[in-house]
Write a protein that binds this DNA or RNA. Structure first.
Lengths: 198, 198
DNA sequence: ATAAGAATATACCGATCGGTTTACTTTCAG
DNA sequence: CTGAAAGTAAACCGATCGGTATATTCTTAT
């Protein structure tokens, strides 16, 4: 839907404010009243622009998804297309970079999923789709590496990625992304590759 | 504190009800009114037994922690003490078993952490401690395997564990624990071992 | 027997929740 | 110039939030 939808200035402020509050405090913990006043806007404007809190939540998740993908691609685009392994490693660099500029509140999508328990909530679809997308990204990169069976390895990379993200929200000591990248390399090296060429 | 504390029957019902609702709906999404009536109890009784919603939350997390550790140990105790690798793999079996008997709502601790954003909330300590404990469990088992440097590997196992747990709450296809167990073995096999004996 | 602890029933508290309504003003493109 | 869209201001809605109060009954160990 609203990919490049231009927002009114008030709408922009509302979404920015909501995004920050939803992420840092949690979705249920923040009321529309707070969001409106923090954005310097009346509740009427908020409802005129977004219709409901649920739709505002969806807009928050969609925009975050979009920004994360842009961040990911801008990191991956720095390596040539014929270096899929480096691209994979770049995903983990992008994650570290993404997390280090933010509060220790873990993954916004995982956190949101924890609060949106109703199966029918439209926000859930956004979250599930973004996770599926990432997993498929791993699959396509592993295919370029001539892996015999990329799916199970992609799944391990995905699990590693999710675990890393969650771990950021704990204050446990961590070697950071470096360790995970080593694991990634081990997993790919030890996997079966297609036999090809002369 | 209240390790084996015997509860009054009403308190027992309250905590059971709260535990189920907190996990399945989220903490902020469930009110004390709902918990009390669902447990067949008046609000007065709830407050006489637990003092506040926050303390009830803490009791929920503590008991869940305790039950999870019991579950883990009962699974690990089935293998002899001189087989640390099998014990590690048993942790992942225990996780799969634990998750399969429950709703697809992921890790109760991670979910709770997402909702308890206040640094000072007493529930946060319970969560962080339980995660630290698990990581240390990996460390001690890897030490028994004569690993030169168990910490970074323990961290990878921990990340894998967390990622696996989160992934359960998504409806992404997954090979389940089998793939993760293979990763665990690869990680341990390729790590440096202490040279010893004749 | 009795007194304390555990429970019920019910009414109440101020605050906040998500959301609506009415009336008025500001901005800006056709 | 004008009319629609975007905005402010403020009152209002019923419902629910976490938490307290009072008064009464049931249970049980000493």
């Amino acid at each position: 839907m609203g990919e490049t939808t231009k927002m009114t200035p008030a709408a922009r402020r509302i979404l920015d404010t909501a995004s920050e509050l939803f992420y840092s405090k949690g979705i249920h913990a923040v009321g529309v009243e707070t969001i409106a006043s923090e954005a310097g806007v009346t509740k009427k404007t908020l409802y005129d622009r977004f219709g409901s809190k649920d739709q505002l939540i969806v807009a928050y998740l969609e925009e975050r998804d979009q920004k994360w993908r842009e961040h990911l691609f801008s990191s991956m685009d720095e390596v040539p297309d014929d270096q899929p392994l480096d691209k994979i490693l770049r995903i983990f660099d992008a994650l570290e970079n993404w997390m280090s500029t933010r509060n220790k509140r873990g993954c916004a999508f995982v956190n949101a999923l924890a609060e949106l328990s109703e199966e029918t909530h439209p926000g859930r679809k956004v979250i599930i789709e973004e996770k599926k997308w990432l997993k498929e990204l791993f699959v396509s990169l592993l295919e370029q590496l001539q892996l015999e069976n990329p799916d199970p390895i992609a799944e391990q990379l995905f699990i590693l990625h999710e675990g890393l993200m969650v771990t950021y929200s704990l204050d446990i000591y961590e070697r950071g992304t470096a360790g995970a990248k080593e694991t990634v390399q081990k997993l790919i090296e030890t996997a079966d590759h297609k036999k090809e060429e002369a």
